[in-house]
Amino acid sequence: MGRTVDRFAALSLLLLVLPLFAPLFISDSYTLHFIWKILFWAALASAWNLAGGYAGQFSLGHAAFFGIGAYTSVLLYLKLGISPWIGMLVGGALAAGFALLIGALTLRLRGAFFALATIAFAEVLRIAVVNMRDLTGGAEGLSIPFAPGLGNMMFSGRAGSVVLVAALLLAIAVVTFIVERSRLGYALAALKEDEEAAEALGVDTIRVKLISIALSAFVSALGGTAYAFYILLIEPSTVLSIGMSVEMALMAIIGGMGTVLGPAIGALLIVPLSEYLRAEFAGSFQGLYLLVYGAILILMVMFMPNGLMSVVRDPRGTLRRLTLRRRTERGRKGDA
């Protein structure tokens, strides 16, 4: 069983290497942008998964760490001329610092209370950014002048950006793979299963939670820099929105929390679906995609609580469980 799991994880990482070569076979600008979006959201969902999926810390304020990464690297670039490659590390360290501070204050909270605390933090940060107009540009945000060059993390075509975000996704997946098989990973598994039992076994649950959320915040901030220097515009209503936090969590949940490949599978389903719905119903039903998101999430919780990864890993077992569930429900209706 252990060898099977290791082989599956290795195959997952191999699949995530493939997007690095996409620009060799695809030259269409729109197609490359579409691939970039899938890889970008897969990276963000994977970053969220380090805390939400493995540690069970259901954060709905992860956009705060994403926004810290974006604003830090952009401000360092615009004000001081510091390369975004350095700025992204500074932003990641700053986000991890905030995560440790917020975590120390809130990680004793559980369930919905922790989620509400993370939402409050993200909202406070958004309001602060809006009001610091001289530094952050306020609600209008900051625009980045286009200056192609590897040192500026800007590319004349989309191919370079696709390779960059694919490399980011692969790096996060490798970190996840290492964490999953480390002592920290076993502690996270015990914590997620039963926190009180984990404490009884000697697991320092507070320390483990802090490490997981700091690591998650760091890589989320890296995604913020990649986004900023691709879009060339950041504004608080986008990079610090609760909608961004929810989409990160949604993709990880639908794909399969606590797995290496799950968030990428979630992004592969949700991004094309949202693009289609937004294009198809842009004029008449602008919020329809949110309704569809909600319906998908409800169905996943009801029929596949472990996400789409349960189907990928064990299609026969999933089919048996669904069939058994259907028979049980029919039996209950017959008894009634």
Rank of each mutant, 00 (worst) to 15 (best):
Val174Thr: 13
Ala159Thr: 05
Leu324Asp: 11
Met1Trp: 08
Asp6Gly: 02
Ile119Gly: 04
Ala282Tyr: 15
Ala117Gly: 00
Phe229Tyr: 01
Phe98Trp: 07
Tyr30Pro: 01
Gly138Lys: 02
Ala166Asp: 02
Tyr289Ile: 07
Val5Leu: 07
Asn49Tyr: 06
Leu184His: 04
Leu277Tyr: 10
Asp28Val: 05
Leu188His: 09
Gly223Gln: 05
Ala217Pro: 01
Ala198Phe: 10
Ile270Trp: 06
Val271Asp: 01
Leu107Trp: 03
Arg330Gly: 02
Gly92His: 03
Val74Gly: 03
Asn49Phe: 09
Gly157Ile: 08
Leu233Trp: 15
Ala159His: 08
Gly87Pro: 09
Pro263Trp: 10
Leu116Ile: 00
Ala197Asn: 04
Ile38Asn: 11
Val239Ile: 10
Ile127Val: 15
Leu13Tyr: 06
Gln57Phe: 03
Ala228Ile: 11
Phe66Glu: 01
Pro84Lys: 04
Val179Ala: 01
Leu291Val: 15
Gly69Arg: 09
Ser212Gly: 04
Ala214Asp: 00
Met251Leu: 13
Pro236Met: 06
Arg3Ser: 12
Gly266Ile: 12
His33Thr: 13
Ile234Pro: 03
Leu94Cys: 12
Pro315Arg: 13
Leu24Phe: 07
Leu299Lys: 14
Gly185Val: 11
Glu180Gly: 05
Ala249Ser: 12
Phe58Pro: 07
Pro272Lys: 11
Arg320Lys: 13
Gly256Gln: 05
Met244Val: 15
Ile234Asn: 02
Ser274Trp: 14
Arg183Cys: 03
Gly255Gln: 05
Val162Pro: 11
Tyr54Phe: 15
Leu240Tyr: 04
Gly262Asn: 01
Gly243Pro: 07
Ser274Asp: 12
Pro19Val: 08
Ala139Gly: 07
Ser12Asp: 04
Ala226Gly: 06
Phe121Gly: 06
Ser284Thr: 15
Pro236Trp: 04
Ser59Ala: 14
Val179His: 00
Ile178Asn: 00
Gly185Ile: 09
Phe114Ile: 02
Ala117Glu: 00
Leu15Phe: 09
Val292Arg: 04
Gly67Tyr: 11
Ala63Leu: 01
Gly137Ala: 11
Ala9Met: 12
Lys37Tyr: 09
Leu39Ala: 07
Val124Trp: 00
His33Gly: 05
His62Met: 12
His62Phe: 07
Arg325Leu: 11
Val292Trp: 11
Val174Cys: 05
Val292Phe: 05
Ala43Glu: 07
Ser156Asn: 10
Gly224Tyr: 10
Thr72His: 08
Phe40Glu: 01
Ala249Asn: 02
Leu11Met: 13
Tyr30Trp: 10
Ala214Ser: 06
Leu20Cys: 04
Thr259Val: 15
Met244Ala: 11
Arg313Asp: 12
Pro145Phe: 06
Ser310Arg: 14
Leu109Gly: 08
Leu75Ser: 06
Ser245Ala: 14
Asp134Met: 08
Leu44Met: 14
Val163Cys: 10
Thr318Tyr: 07
Ala10Pro: 04
Arg126Ile: 00
Arg183Phe: 12
Arg126Asn: 03
Ala9Arg: 14
Val208Pro: 05
Lys79Leu: 13
Val175Arg: 00
Trp48Tyr: 09
Ala295Met: 12
Ala128Asp: 03
Ala166Gly: 03
Leu297Ala: 09
